[in-house]
Structures are given as C-alpha cells and as structure tokens.
Design a protein around this nucleic acid. Structure first.
Length: 968
DNA sequence: GAGCACTGC
C-alpha cells in the first residue's frame, strides 16, 4: 500500500524538522504511550495524505482520524485549486462525529511543541497562511455536487459497515456512559481511547446544551503521557492546551489548566489522590476516567478502592475505567459487573516468533557450548528466584522432557534453555549471508532489544562493539536505561539515514515510557527486573524475572507503530504457557507505610479494612508490618490514630522517613541543604552514568563528596555547584553538568521540589518563608555535622555498623545491620571503597537485596548524632565497662556521668521537639535566652565540636570518645 | 564492584 512505502519521503523529512520525533526537541516527553500513539497514527495519516492523492483513507482509520486524514487530503487538493475536496473536508468533519467545529488548519497540525523560537515563528506564519487558505471556502456559495453527495454517502456507509467504526461510534459509548455509573472501556494502546473517550463525553454534553455540567478528569500513570495526551487533544480541538481552554493538564509542579467547567483535564493519578485531601467527594468532577489501570500501579489501585467507595456518596459521578483487553473483565467484576465496551486497536499487525521458531528460521546451532553457558549464567542474573515463582520453575523443569519430545520442539531446545542467544540472533538478523539463511530478509526499521538491566545492556553493547561490522557507520547502537544520559537525548528518536540500522538496547523503559516510532523489529529477552518486598526478611528485593504475557504483548506492540513488524521472544512455548498473565500488582509487592499514612489522612477508616477492599489486597502480614513501622516512627499511636508527627508526615508528599527529615531540617535551621537531600531521596539522585564511563563517573562523585563520607552531602555539593554554575549562564551550567555527569533536568526538578516542600512547611507553620534559602530557616546550614545529625533524625533506625576488614583480598570495611547481618555498601556510593572512616556508624535510606544486600546511599554519622536523634537510650554497666546504648544495639563506651547527662539532654530535646511539632512552630533563633534555643544550641554545640577521634576500630566493639568528658 | 520503571494540590 502506498502509505507504507511513503515513510522517509521528502515530505516526511521536511516535517521532521519540527516534528515531535526528530526536531530540535530536547526531551522525550512526547514519547509517551497511550493517547500519544493516537497522535502518531494521525501523523501517519498526514504522510499518507501528502502522497495518497485521489485515494481513499487507509482502512485502519476510524472516526475522527478519518476526518483528520481528509482534512489533510483536502489541504493538498486545495493547493491544486480543487474546491470540491474542500467540501469533502467539511462533509467529513460534520459526518464523522457529533463534534464541535474543528478548524482543519489546526487539526492537521502537529500538537504544540517546544521547537526553537525561530521555527515556532515560522510555523505560526505558516499556520496563519493556512488558516487563511482554509477560510477561503467560507466565502463561496455552497452548490450541490451530486457526485460528492454519493461519494459521501458511500463512504459513510462503508464506515458504518466496518465493525471498528461501528464500535467506535460516539453514540454507543456516550449512551453507555450516560446510562451507567461505571463503564469499562477496553482496548489496546493505539486504539485512541485516551484521546477520544474524554472528548466524546464533553462534546455530548455540549451538544445537549449541558456543557457547563461537564468536567472530565482523566488520570494517567506517567507525567509525560498526561502532557502529551492533553496537547494532542487540544490540537484536535483546534485549541492550545490550558489557558482556560477546553483541555489542560496538571502534574506535580507543572500545570496548564483548562476552564473549570465544560472541560477535560489530564492529570497524573497522584494529583487526584492529593485532591482528595481537600475535596473528598471530588465534587468538582463529573466524569472520572482512569486510564491504563491494567498496569496495576499502586496509585491507580488505591484510587480504584476510593472511587468504589465514593460511588456510595455521589450518585451523579460517572466512572470510566480504561484498560488493556487482557484483564478488562477483572475491573468489571470489581465494580459489580459493570458493562464493558471494546475498542479495537489501530496498530499494525506484528508477527510473533518463539524460540523454537527462531531456531528454525536462523538454523542456529550452538558452536561452543561451554563458553556460552557460562556467559549465559553471568548474563542473566537469575540466581535469586522469588518464592512464589519457584513453583513455576519446578513445573517448567518437570514438563520439559515431554515438551522436548513434541514435534514443535527443536532438537537443540534443551540446550538453548541455558544458553543466551542474543549475539547470535542479532548477528543473524543484521548480517544475513545468503549462505547461512535464505528465509530472512530484513526491511528498513529499527531493532529494539528488551533486556532486564544495566549489566545485560552493557554486555550486549560490548559484544556488538567487538564486531567490526557493528562499529561501522552502517549501525547506530543506542543503550537505553534510566541512568544513562541517552534517555534525555533525541538521538534515540531520530530516524537514521538510509542504509543505517538503528539498534536500541533497552530496559522496560521502552515498554511504556519511551516510544521509539520507527521500531519494526523487537527482540524480547523475556526477562524483566522487578522490585518486590520480602516480607519474611523485611527487605526490598530487585530480581530479574520472566516477563508476564502482558509485558510480552506490550513489547510486541512496540514493533507495529509504523508498519507491520516482527517480534522475537527468546523463550520457548513451554515457558510462554507457564507465564503469568500479568505482573503482580504493585500494591502486593511494595512497602505500605506511606500508603497507610495516606489512608489515615484521608480519613478512610481502619487501614486493614480499607486495604482488604483492593482488587488484589496486600497480605495481612504486610499491612501489619507497615503499621508497626509507623508506630515505631511515632507517626501512629497504638489505636492507629495519627500522632502530631504522623499528621505532618502524611501531609508531605514524600515517604515518612523523608518527611521526618524535612521537618527536622526546618526545626534545626538547616532547611536548604536538607531539602536538597529530601528531594533527591524521594525523586532520584541527579547523577548520570554513561555506559563505559562508570569509573570516571565514580571518580567525579568522589571528588564532589569533598571527603564528607556521605552520599547525601555529595548531592548537596553537586547541587550547590549547579546553582553557582547556573548563575554564570547556560553555557556554564551545561559544562558543569557534563563534567560532573549530572542531569540538569533532574537538578531542576529537585530545585522545584524544594520549593514545594518549603511551601508545605510554611503552611504547616514550621518556617516563616516559602523560600528554602530564607536566612531565618538556614541559621545552621553551613554546619555539616549538624546536617548529618538531621539525616539521622530523619532516617533512623536505618543504621549500619562499620567494622574493619582484615581481608587482604578486598580492602575496605565490613558493614552490618541489626536485622540482616553483613551487608554491602553499594559500589555507586562514595563510601564504597572508603577505608578511613571517622566513626563506626552509617545511616542510609535505601537498602535492597539484589545479588547481595546493598545500602544504596549512606552517610557516616557520629555517636552524638545517634544518641540525640536515634532511639531510646539505656545506660548499663557491664563488668568493668560503663556503656550508653541506643535501642540496645548501638553501644558506646561512656562514663556513667556523661551517659546520664546525655540521656537527660536527649529527654529535654525530645519534649521540646514534640512540643514544636504539636504546635508546629519554628524555633526562635533570635532569642538566645529562650529555653528552646538553649537546649538546641547545647546539643548542636555537642554535635559540632565533638573531636574527630582516632582510628575508630582500635577500640573493641564499642567506642565513645572519652575526650568529651569536659563538655556538657 | 553494580544501578527495572513510575509517582505526589
């Protein structure tokens, strides 16, 4: 068909200059899925319109897209002074949907984008000219054109007889929505449900003269999709996004709001959950559309529970649940078998191959089994299987002999089970020699390889780069991972020049978050990394698991965006038959503390009873553990009520420990630096790591740490460096980021988040200004030791003990936690290879079990900071040693006199802080004579002036600096 | 000696 071969034509190239894929766009926001794909299919239409003159619209288009296609088609024809087709445009605009007026000029244009100023101006000019052109027909008398009439009629009928069009009919959908309180809309990515359903609802209301009664809010799991979908919809409606128009978006710290009534708002799920605090009935919303709920994110699951409850209080609220087809009926069942409607997809067909097919096609025979099987073992880090997955593994092993005998199984399959084929297959795909294989001919298009993690991406990249062929300019190989700078570059979206093959090696980031349009071949490695929570050992885990069928389907779909594609799954049919339909919902594999606080602040009743109502509830044990942790944190009391501290923690949009960090940063007068840490811990650290430059990146971080023995202070240093560089101008900023492997985007986000936290603190009454840098909030901000103590206050009891290592093979230290025993400092930490610590304790935020148990970030902390900001203090006299201990675990040697002084001072501090938190008042640093100030200043002095001790492990097991005798 | 992916008035 003509439109398939039209890719890469001159027209395409010209548009590409400001298109959302390859233009000067810096970020990849537009790469989102869902509704964004709708945008691309329209893009597709445009190309076709340019060349498909005189042709009918492509058969896969429906509804509005047909209108858009003909709008484009019309524009081309108009240039040839053919007025008849202009009327065709109008005709279709009216006929295709019950829709308000759409200017063909804007409808056929790209959604507003962030291209260069010049280009934008140029574009505006072009647009104006086009509007002028388009308006021309308005001044001509409409005369009957019989041939057009019959054409229109035929076309409409043909569309109506097309089942896709029929199902997409506005009427049916709108009628279902109007006559039901809950409706499930199912359809695959690319079917247009995200951009269309909301508009159908609004337009129906407007048509009935009830426009002002309609406020549609549609939730998206990702920030990027909220923006891109809103922009797409606004473009379809011939408007700009936000500015009081009919369509807008809201995500954290960024919004372009539509008018309040008669409008559509796209927002992230988290935004709605925040709204619920001030508007528990969501009374400003008439229709709530929950999109992508099949992904089973924590937030969307929680919103489902709440919405189900909400229906008891709001009989005028309409709920539309949008899900992929595979588990749509689960949601229907959850809402008392509410009706479902299916919208068929628009993507191109993708041919799928399982491992046995691949062997058949490639005629692959392993050549050097020994080498590969060991390579395979290191390639997949499949050593740690989650208990619930073990059963399937056993079943696989038991079924294997039978499967191997079946006719479809190839003789060498058994072997392949252990051997990774990537290099061979990829080689095969891209350098087919006629002698080796006759079956395979590659067409143009990028290859997208899905691998579970950094290591695999790195190994495959190395393997490819070891081949002279792949190093040649016939290939461009792009590793894609959230930690690599490539995620923020446009390169991955660009179409390579003719004759150059693009190979993207990606994690599941390319499954939903980043959409690469020109992918035609997908190689699905079949594994995915998944975080989970090991409830028995009370630890988060990250392991590579077999993908679910839903993942496999999603990956497959990535190949069919521009033309029919092919997807190769590197697992056999037996494996496929044992795969889960879906990944475990996030709510079942994540710690629940923060969620529990949310439930409390939203006054949703008993935590356990609320969570029981989830579509897939977390285990009782998980819930109880979270509650216990919150009680230990003094956020909940024993009757599950929020304490004063808990109340403030629940109001901050961060997890409880980070909330506590923020509060203490405010109370102890080191707001700005502490907010940098808090933002970074709750979002992500700003460091990039280019593939192959891991060592260099480590060194730069180490330099930035300025020997603070702290990842947290390293981030402060990096951030301050960035602030300073930015003041000198954009060029310096860029240079600074580049030199230090920092992401300017992330740093900017952290900066914005700091502002948000400070605003929260001001509203809560803990500081007097919403400026994080306000001097009154920062009297102690240059006190590094105090900042470390505040980190203890926030993150306690996440403490680890340092002991010297006597191993000659691996110098450094040994690290232990109370619950896990020996753990490792993550190699990315600035403390990873540190041998000289000043103290014997570390405080950390994230601990996770992967190949071992790792502390991902940590800060060396002093005894006094643990004593004052840690847990309960006990004083003991064992044999000849007098000791003081925090929670009976962190033991220091100390004379009883000092120990008692510390204990009393700590008691004063506790009651002071409790009082401050209860009455949410800032500490008055001006009045040095006040009791507040006296106690806090005394403690700060102690923490600050404590001598740096001698080599800490010269004293056995316990350590406390006796030199402190003279201080109190 | 190692880093799936998201999100927050």
């Amino acid at each position: 068909m003509s439109f398939r071969s039209s890719r890469g034509g001159g027209r395409r190239g010209r548009r590409g200059g400001r298109g959302c894929r390859d233009g000067s766009r810096e970020r990849w926001e537009k790469g989102g899925d869902g509704g964004a794909s709708r945008g691309h299919s329209s893009d597709r239409d445009r190309d076709q319109g340019a060349e498909g003159q005189g042709a009918r619209h492509p058969p896969h288009l429906k509804g509005r897209e047909i209108g858009l296609w003909y709008a484009k088609y019309g524009a081309v024809r108009r240039k040839q002074a053919d007025r008849r087709s202009v009327r065709t445009v109008l005709g279709f605009m009216v006929l295709s949907e019950t829709r308000t007026f759409i200017s063909p000029a804007v409808a056929k244009d790209e959604p507003p984008d962030k291209w260069d100023e010049d280009e934008q101006q140029q574009d505006e000019k072009e647009k104006l000219m086009r509007v002028h052109e388009d308006l021309e027909f308005l001044f001509h008398e409409v005369v009957r054109d019989v041939s057009l009439d019959s054409y229109l009629k035929r076309d409409l009928q043909s569309k109506k007889s097309d089942p896709k069009y029929g199902e997409m009919l506005v009427g049916e959908l709108v009628q279902l929505i109007n006559s039901n309180r809950v409706l499930v809309v199912s359809g695959e990515t690319g079917c247009g449900k995200t951009t269309q359903v909301t508009q159908f609802i609004l337009d129906d209301h407007i048509n009935r003269g009830m426009g002002s009664m309609c406020r549609v809010v549609c939730t998206q799991p990702r920030r990027i999709s909220a923006i891109s979908v809103a922009e797409r919809v606004a473009a379809e409606r011939a408007e700009r996004v936000g500015n009081g128009n009919s369509c807008g978006y809201q995500i954290r710290l960024q919004s372009r709001l539509p008018r309040r009534q008669g409008s559509i708002l796209y927002c992230t799920t988290g935004i709605i959950l925040q709204w619920l605090r001030s508007d528990p009935l969501l009374s400003s919303i008439s229709h709530l559309v929950l999109d992508e709920i099949h992904e089973r994110n924590l937030q969307s699951d929680v919103l489902l529970i709440i919405v189900k409850e909400l229906l008891n209080f709001r009989d005028d609220l309409k709920i539309i649940l949008m899900s992929a087809t595979l588990n749509a009926d689960k949601f229907s069942k959850y809402f008392e078998n509410c009706p479902m409607i299916h919208i068929p997809g628009l993507t191109f067909p993708v041919e799928e191959f399982l491992l046995e097919d691949i062997i058949e096609i490639t005629r692959y025979r392993p050549q050097d089994p020994d080498r590969r099987s060991s390579w395979n073992r290191s390639f997949w880090q499949g050593r740690h299987i989650r208990p619930e997955k073990e059963e399937k593994e056993t079943e696989y092993k038991e079924s294997w002999p039978f499967y191997a005998e079946a006719p479809q199984a190839n003789g060498c399959l058994f072997f392949l089970m252990f051997v990774c084929l990537f290099l061979e297959i990829l080689l095969f795909f891209v350098c087919l020699s006629a002698a080796k294989c006759h079956v395979f001919v590659l067409q143009d298009g990028a290859i997208l390889v899905f691998l579970p993690g950094w290591d695999n991406i790195s190994s495959l990249n190395d393997l490819l780069m070891a081949q002279p062929m792949f190093r040649s300019d016939r290939f461009v190989i792009i590793p894609l991972h959230s930690l690599m700078p490539t995620v923020n570059q446009t390169q991955v979206f660009k179409r390579p020049p003719l004759g150059v093959r693009k190979i993207v090696i990606a994690t599941n980031i390319a499954e939903t978050s980043i959409t690469i349009d020109d992918v035609v071949y997908v190689i699905d490695g079949g594994k995915i990394k998944e975080t989970s929570f090991d409830i028995d050992n009370n630890i988060s885990t990250l392991t590579a698991e077999w993908v679910s069928l839903a993942n496999a389907k999603q990956r497959k779909g990535r190949a069919g965006r521009v033309c029919p594609g092919k997807c190769y799954h590197l697992y056999n049919g037996l494996r496929a038959s044992l795969m889960d339909a879906y990944q475990l919902p996030e709510i079942m594999r994540t710690p629940l503390e923060e969620l529990c606080l949310q439930i409390k602040i939203l006054k949703l009743g008993s935590i356990a009873r609320f969570l029981e109502k989830a579509p897939d509830p977390p285990t009782e044990k998980a819930v109880n553990l979270a509650i216990k942790n919150l009680i230990d944190l003094n956020a909940l009391d024993h009757s599950e009520n929020l304490t004063a501290l808990g109340f403030h923690l629940a109001r901050l949009p961060v997890e409880p420990h980070i909330g506590k960090l923020i509060l203490f940063g405010a109370l102890l007068g080191c707001l700005d630096p502490v907010l940098i840490i808090a933002a970074s811990l709750s979002f992500k650290d700003p460091f990039f790591i280019p593939l192959g430059k891991e060592k260099l990146a480590d060194m730069r971080r180490k330099t930035l740490s300025k020997n603070s023995k702290s990842d947290h202070l390293t981030i402060i240093n990096a951030f301050r460096g960035w602030e300073e560089a930015k003041q000198h101008g954009a060029r310096y900023e860029k240079e600074y980021c580049w030199d230090n492997f920092l992401s300017a985007n992330t740093l900017q986000m952290l900066h914005n988040m700091k502002g948000q936290f400070a605003e929260h603190l001001m509203h809560a009454g803990f500081v007097s200004s919403k400026d994080p840098k306000d001097p009154k909030s920062n009297v102690n901000s240059d006190n590094e030791k105090l900042i470390k103590a505040v980190i203890v206050a926030g993150l306690y009891p996440k403490v680890a003990m340092i002991r010297p290592s006597h191993s000659k093979k691996r110098p450094g230290v040994k690290v232990y936690t109370q619950a896990d025993g020996k753990v490792c400092i993550h190699p990315k930490s600035v403390n990873a290879e540190e041998t000289e610590f000043n103290y014997t304790w570390l405080i950390y935020h994230l601990k996770m079990r992967t190949s071992s148990i790792f502390l991902y970030d940590c800060t060396e902390v002093s005894p006094f900071s643990l004593l004052f900001f840690g847990g309960d203090i006990t004083i003991q006299k064992d044999e000849d040693q007098e000791t003081i201990a925090v929670d009976k675990w962190i033991v220091f040697r100390s004379p009883a006199r000092i120990a008692h002084l510390v204990k009393n001072l700590k008691k004063e501090l506790d009651s002071l802080l409790e009082e401050k938190i209860r009455n949410s008042a800032p500490v008055d640093w001006q009045n040095r004579k006040s009791k507040d100030c006296a106690v806090i200043t005394a403690i700060i002095d102690l923490i600050t002036t404590q001598e740096t001790p001698r080599a800490p492990w010269t004293r056995k097991h316990t350590y406390f600096d006796d030199d402190d005798d003279d201080k109190d």
